[in-house]
Nucleic acid binder design. Structure first.
Lengths: 106, 106
DNA sequence: TATATATGCAACTTTTCGGTTTCGCAATTT
DNA sequence: AAATTGCGAAACCGAAAAGTTGCATATATA
């Protein structure tokens, strides 16, 4: 089962789950109430999210609380970084053009 | 055809294509040489990337150059922002704990 | 003009994915 | 102890995705 984080966030329901549990851990039943899917479908999504370590489980009696593993989200940020460099450098180039134009105006 | 950017970057080959053309536009044939897929398969990926506007085409004679639309990448960054806030606030909390401990040491 | 090249597109196949239904198990509650 | 509740896992299904093959079209080149 090749579970990577990019595949995990590809599904809109999973992104919804991530947003939902970002601030507080929740049980599968509570999560499922927020979507138009059965608990089992949500459970499947939770499994995928758990497998790629985007989410962690905490057992409390017969309930299982799912919480976002925020550290893992940084991996996406890390991947984005190479492109951030590009758009920032382009912005700086634009900035230079603008300041050059300003200078010429003087 | 529901093409969203998250689905687009879910595929590893497509992420490879994005990385490849990030700095300079390339033709489908040139891109395909870098992967273990046929030109047609790559062409299909390019179509998906174009549909969600992650990539733009530039016609030059019988060749088509594909270039990354870096602005579109910012959408992912924008989505990440809500989580960035979370991990930054947690970091600050840790920071506070550390400085409190330091104070007590004194 | 005939041929080679660069490319997209459509048809087809195989695999993967998301969902539902059914079941089993463990922890509560009555 | 019996019934209820919370949950995961397996079996199954339809839809979508990813890849291949075969073709059509436009632009170069000989």
């Amino acid at each position: 089962m090749r579970r990577d984080i990019f595949q995990a966030i590809a599904d809109p329901t999973r992104r919804g789950i991530i947003a939902l549990i970002a601030l507080q851990a929740m049980t599968p039943n509570a999560i499922a109430e927020n979507f138009n899917s059965t608990r089992q479908a949500v459970s499947k999504h939770l499994r995928i999210l758990t497998e790629c370590e985007l989410v962690k489980q905490e057992y409390r009696g017969r309930e299982i609380y799912y919480a976002l593993e925020i550290e893992k989200m940084k991996e996406i940020d890390k991947w984005l970084d190479q492109y951030r460099k590009i758009w920032e450098s382009r912005f700086n180039q634009l900035d230079q053009v603008l300041s050059t134009l300003k200078k010429q105006k003087k």
